[in-house]
Each structure stands twice: as structure tokens, then as C-alpha cells.
Amino acid sequence: MTVYIYLYCVFSTEYMSIHPVLPGAMNPFRHRRQRNISYNPVTSSATRQEPNVVKITVYDFNQADCKILQLEHIEDTFPYKDSSTVSWINIDGLRREDIKKLCDYFGVHFLLADDILSVGQRAKMDEIGDYLFALLPMLYFNYQSHTVEQEQVSILLGKNIVISFQDDPEKDVFNSVREKLNIHNSKLRNGSADFLAYSLLDAIVDSYFHVVDKLAERIEFVEDLVQRDASKRTLGRINFLRHEMLTFRRAISPVRDVINGFLKSDSELLHDTVEKFFKDVFDHIIQANDTAENYREMVLNLQEMYLTQVNLKMNEVMKVLAVVTTLIAPPTLIAGIYGMNFKNMPELETKNGYYVVLAIMVVIFVSMIAVFKKRGWF
């Protein structure tokens, strides 16, 4: 054994020296690289790509009026810092230079600016200086690929101002908030900036239920598929669905701490009258987490159902093979006996012995089938 190991090591060393492994070529002596799965722990990322288009929308409103403005430059938002009305500045597309200018002018701490520009950051809530900050995922369901997609959203709450930052100008879940702003004398128009921040958070959390409902439909579809066709393709669908449920659950789980942070905050930016609304959002995110956990268990049950179906199929195959083997055993035994090369066998000289033996085989075969049918074995 020692000699074998020595020769193997020598051969592998000489082979690698004579035949170096090219990049991308298969190396039988290389261990498989393990896959690392983790959240991005940093607050800033140099790999963020600059957007081609930046869309800046301002909703400046009070009880009597609501102005909707489309701005071209980030400097155009500066006059709303000290506005007497409530202002919502929504920025779609994050340029590093624009975010730095806005944060410098509005007095936002540089740590919050780094969080806004981060990529793949875990949901969090901070209270630094004169602002309350929330970072959380905005989720969408892709109907073509049946996958859960997410976009990072940052919300800054200040005095009479709310600033939201998004990456994709084409995707949004804030239409319900915009509709309420267009309604005269609505609760949102009569509210303050903290009520606007609540409305944005509530719209994001409500969108989670839409995504989880679509995942539930996929679970029902795959469940029917498992019962009809427990193939490897079905197993792939189950594993894919399990991955999407894991992505969804991992994304929304930290949001509970974000809403809880607003409830526990003693900031003057949050009024007592708005606390009950944040409690409602907290109840919703708890419900979303519980629903995600229930659906995750359903996906695990799908895997068990798949294994059960595969085992049932295997049992059916084994039962058929066992029945066939049992039916063939008696004729095989009889043929084996009369196939022995002995001279003194009484039945060898029988005139119709061959046909008698065949008849006996057929009778035994048919009798066994009748007995098996009667007992319900197949």
C-alpha cells in the first residue's frame, strides 16, 4: 500500500510538471472550489455602475395643493431643504457624484451616503444626526423566469422632507402613494413627513405579499406536477422553487428590525399619532415572515412527496419483477430437472413426455397468475 501511494504521488508530480494545466482545462488533481454564500458586509462598493439615466421627481404638497416636478439636476432639489411644505424627493438612478452633492448640502452623514451607494446591503435602520435612515429591499416577481428580483431602496426622513433612492427607474411600488397624493384632503396630504415615510414603507411591505402569492401559485403548480410526473425535471423545479423561497425569506427577514427601529426611536421626527401606523406595518412584516416560513416548509414537503412518489414507482417496478421472477421459477425448475444428463430417468422414454411437461408448466403458470390476481398482488 505504501509503495502504491508513493508511485501515485511521483506520477502526479511528474505529470503536472510535464503537462501543465491550462486555464479552464479540467484538472483531475485539483479540489473543487467551495461556493461562498454570504451578504455583502461592506457599506460601499466601487463596483456600482453609473446609470445612464437619472430621474428626479419632487412631490411638494400640503393640505391645499400638491406640486409634481421633474428635475434635471441634483442641485435643483436644494431649495426644498428648508421648505415649509412637505417634500418627497424620489431619485431613480444613483450617481456617486450626485449623491455626494445632495448629502453634503442636506447635512447627511457620510456613513449614510455610503449605505445609499452600497450594493447587496442587508436591510437596516439608522438614526444619525437630523435624519432617520432606512434601507430595505423592494421585491418583484419576474413572470417570465418565475424568479424573485430585488432592488435596494433607501429612505431618508428629515424635517418636512423625505428622500428616497432607487436603482431602476422602470420599477416601482409607490404608485399607491402617488395616487393618494393626488387626492384632495387625503390623510397623506394632511399628514407630516413621518406619515409619508410610513406610507412608503407600507407600500414596500405590501408588495411582499404580492410576491409571496405568486410563489404560492408556483408551489401549487409544482405540487400537481409531482403527483403526475415525479421525474428529474420535476426535482429541478422543486430545487429552483426552494432557492427562490430562500431568497425571498432572506430578503424580508431583516425588514422586521427596520420597522421595529422606527417604533423604538425617540426622535422628534416621529410623532405619537403615527406610531400606530408603524405598528400596523410591523404586524404586516411579521405576517409576511410567517407566511414565507410556512411556504418554505411546503417546499420541503414537496421534496418529501417527490421521494415518496419515486419510491412508489420503484416499488411498483420491483413488484412486477418479483411477480415475473416467481412465475418463471417453476417452469425453470422443471426444465432444469429434465435437462440433467442422466441415463436412468424414467420419464425420458415416455412417448408424449415433452407435451405433458409443457402442459404442466402452463397449468402451473396459469394457476399462479390466478392466485396472485385473487390476492391482489398485481
Score class of each variant (00 low, 15 high):
35 R>F: 08
316 E>N: 09
135 L>W: 01
142 N>K: 06
8 Y>L: 11
37 I>Y: 05
132 L>W: 03
176 S>Y: 01
355 Y>C: 04
65 D>H: 05
233 R>F: 05
61 F>W: 07
235 L>E: 02
130 D>P: 01
107 G>M: 07
95 R>G: 14
62 N>P: 01
111 L>N: 06
308 T>W: 03
93 G>F: 04
120 G>M: 09
199 S>Y: 07
274 V>S: 08
350 T>C: 09
11 F>C: 12
50 E>Q: 13
298 M>T: 10
144 Q>Y: 06
278 F>A: 03
8 Y>P: 02
307 L>K: 08
301 N>I: 08
321 L>H: 07
73 H>I: 07
29 F>W: 12
112 L>R: 00
82 D>K: 05
256 R>D: 07
144 Q>T: 15
199 S>H: 04
375 R>V: 11
180 K>N: 14
106 F>N: 04
237 R>E: 15
85 T>F: 04
59 Y>S: 06
14 E>L: 14
159 K>C: 06
367 S>H: 05
350 T>V: 13
3 V>T: 14
364 I>D: 00
143 Y>F: 14
299 V>K: 00
222 V>T: 10
79 P>K: 04
205 V>A: 09
66 C>T: 10
257 D>Y: 02
316 E>Q: 08
270 L>T: 05
228 R>K: 14
75 E>T: 10
136 L>V: 07
139 L>Y: 02
363 V>I: 14
309 Q>F: 03
13 T>C: 10
316 E>T: 03
52 N>L: 13
140 Y>F: 15
21 V>T: 13
369 I>K: 11
124 K>P: 00
132 L>M: 15
210 H>M: 13
349 E>F: 06
124 K>Y: 00
122 R>S: 03
223 E>F: 06
229 D>R: 11
313 K>W: 05
53 V>S: 15
147 T>F: 10
12 S>H: 10
136 L>I: 07
146 H>M: 12
42 V>D: 12
262 F>C: 00
179 E>C: 11
331 P>D: 09
317 V>Y: 15
150 Q>N: 14
131 Y>V: 10
232 K>M: 14
331 P>M: 08
247 T>K: 13
81 K>Q: 13
208 Y>R: 01
268 E>A: 12
179 E>H: 14
58 V>I: 12
66 C>H: 01
42 V>I: 07
235 L>D: 00
190 N>D: 07
322 A>N: 13
19 H>M: 10
53 V>M: 12
367 S>R: 05
105 Y>S: 08
258 V>W: 03
211 V>M: 04
375 R>T: 08
161 I>E: 04
355 Y>S: 12
39 Y>T: 10
341 N>I: 05
286 I>E: 04
256 R>I: 01
